[in-house]
Design a protein around this nucleic acid. Structure first.
Lengths: 197, 197
DNA sequence: GCGTCTTCTAGAAAATCACTCCAGAAATTC
DNA sequence: GAATTTCTGGAGTGATTTTCTAGAAGACGC
């Protein structure tokens, strides 16, 4: 790690951290270029040098945390001996992530991540693709082994993650009375019923 | 219908229609005040007179279509004799709506509707509340009659709509190969398994 | 140590938007 | 037919993102 690169990493990390902090404190409304520049202490020029645009910065931040979340999910799948245990583990891991990282979870489930998280460069897409295809592979194995119902892969993925995302959104939006602990206790069994063979 | 009101309705409808057209053609990026003014032929002042802000216009548009969608869902629930038939009907109605009204569905599933659709006035909220509470009531009856599993209502709602929304989003984003007809054929049975008693 | 090239920082200026404001037209009311 | 309310029009304002360019800091060969 050369000094120059070290400096560069520090600067972009300063920006990413500041962006998350601003988002948590001020919401997506307050997440402006000037606010990030102010709280990070980094200059406007540096921001645009490293990320090209505000969307680029937000996209990189979203990607960083989406990668963590997908990492938790794939780890849960990998460590499970059965399809049933894998589904349950992934559901619990998702909800645990939302509880432990409320700020980042809020970002990932906010409109910002949808818009700016997409249309990323190659590196971003590829790292994600690796995760996603690992999930797809795990599902295919479950179907082939007869543990999961013989459905199209996207449908199985939607049946598993759809309810989890819905519950997470409700909890994060705050207007609903969803207890994530309760959801983590009840959802795995119900979701399993919808995808088991 | 007096002449003035007639003119007023025409003007606001011109704006709503133009906004949807602009969104479908140019995406949420292109949905600007000037674009709406240009394509509608209505003046800037009129836009702000009728809707107060761009968010107000988008919110009204989202509300108009969300109301239609919820109407389809509640109609499906009302016309069903059993809980199982109701779930299946609602799922099919949702997916049919997405196929028949791709533009509006894209709007409803886009970040715009999330942000601007909220924080509306009393009239908007109330009309929606009526729909939502009708759904809640239907679910409660299913639980009480022993047809649905004794779960918290938000969880049941998430188990039913979560996968449907996930599939709809995939289809609308275009990057995925989800066949909505196939989904409408397969999902009802799988979702039913996750919520039946 | 010394010039060169690339990378990075800095912030002023430009461009784009949503929104305000108010003058006046059109419709309504009495 | 005058007064009042509602609606239309668009120039102007302020905020925000982005561009531009001048130059500082580091990498590298010599």
């Amino acid at each position: 790690m050369s000094p120059k690169q070290h400096r560069g990493e520090v600067t972009s990390d300063l920006l990413l951290d500041a962006a998350l902090r601003v988002f948590v404190e001020s919401g997506e409304q307050g997440l402006t270029v000037s606010a990030v520049v102010r709280t990070s202490g980094v200059s406007l020029g540096s921001l645009y040098h490293h990320f090209g645009s505000l969307d680029g910065l937000i996209g990189a931040l979203s990607h960083r945390w989406l990668d963590r979340l997908l990492g938790e999910l794939t780890k849960a799948l990998r460590n499970a001996g059965t399809a049933r245990a894998g589904i349950a583990g992934a559901v619990e891991a998702y909800l645990a992530f939302v509880q432990e990282h409320r700020g980042p979870a809020l970002l990932l489930h906010s409109p910002l991540a949808d818009r700016k998280g997409m249309a990323r460069g190659r590196e971003f897409r590829d790292a994600q693709e690796a995760r996603v295809s690992e999930v797809a592979l795990w599902i295919r194995q479950g179907v082939d082994s007869g543990e999961l119902a013989p459905l199209p892969l996207p449908l199985i993925e939607s049946l598993v993650l759809g309810p989890v995302v819905a519950v997470a959104r409700r909890s994060l939006s705050g207007i609903d009375d969803v207890d994530l602990d309760e959801a983590a206790r009840l959802l795995p069994e119900q979701i399993w019923r919808s995808v088991r063979a």
